[in-house]
């Protein structure tokens, strides 16, 4: 556990040293702030004290920002050869994967923490369903964790960061949109399968305030699967 945190901390400091973290934080807060308060279906237009408009925009901006954060995690280390240095230290491949996963998750949580003033402001505007806000944040974190896992897997596939970014986006778009579209086109068993695979189904049910074990299982298995694939890829180099 200590080793995982050491890796995560190094990764975080490299996010902040390279300005990556600041750019993403500013972009994320700028986007979500703009669309929550100023433009489009913002809080004032909707006229209700809820955070649905924020969750909607965060759901989309995180989808694009996360691959940008994860693309370098493994591919850059493979390209520069530092992965060899890291893996010849007394730590396991799993600790490397989990450390990197944790680092990005912490960064996303920092970004989300900066949006807590939105919550406080809206709470003073009218009656707010506090439970739904917290489950909404939980939903965002679970969604982010899934995309970080996918991004990490994509990053383990290539030495090229751009390739890793695009692969992560490509896989992500299936869960984000395509399965949802397919679910609408099919009925019966196949429709059910696509509805289940659609990430939005689970995100919506959580952000409405319902924590169903079915949704949790979905997110956790998506995270676990992508991390296992990333670890397998990392281990494969040794054979």
């Amino acid at each position: 556990m200590k080793e995982i945190w050491i890796i995560a901390r190094r990764e975080l400091s490299s996010f902040f040293n390279s300005l990556m973290a600041y750019i993403l934080l500013i972009a994320f807060l700028g986007f979500s702030g703009f669309f929550t308060w100023i433009s489009g279906a913002d809080v004032f237009l909707v006229g209700q004290a809820n955070m649905q408009s924020f969750f909607g925009i965060a759901y989309w901006s995180l989808f694009f920002f996360i691959p940008a954060m994860t693309m370098g995690l493994l591919s850059e280390e493979t390209r520069s050869g530092t992965i060899e240095l890291l893996l010849t230290k007394p730590i396991s491949d799993w600790q490397v994967i989990l450390g990197k996963f944790l680092s990005t998750l912490v960064l996303v949580c920092i970004a989300l923490a900066f949006t807590l003033p939105y919550y406080i402001t809206i709470a003073t505007l009218g009656p707010l369903d506090h439970g739904a806000v917290w489950t909404g944040y939980l939903g965002l974190i679970l969604m982010s964790a899934s995309y970080i896992g996918i991004g990490l897997f994509a990053s383990s596939l290539s030495k090229n960061q751009i390739v890793a970014f695009l692969v992560a986006l490509l896989i992500g778009i299936f869960f984000h949109i395509i399965f949802g579209v397919l679910a609408g086109n099919f009925t019966g068993f196949l429709g059910g399968v696509f509805t289940y695979l659609n990430l939005n189904t689970h995100f919506e049910s959580i952000s409405r305030g319902v924590i169903d074990s079915k949704d949790l299982i979905y997110f956790f298995s998506l995270i676990a699967l992508s991390l296992i694939l990333a670890e397998t890829n990392l281990t494969r180099r040794r054979f």
Binding site: S13, S14, S80, G81, T82, L85, T88
Partner: peptide, 13 residues
């Protein structure tokens, strides 16, 4: 203690 070929290091640290 291992010094790999081409000495890879984290350049941003």
């Amino acid at each position: 203690g291992y010094l790999p070929e081409n000495n890879p290091l984290y350049n941003d640290m």
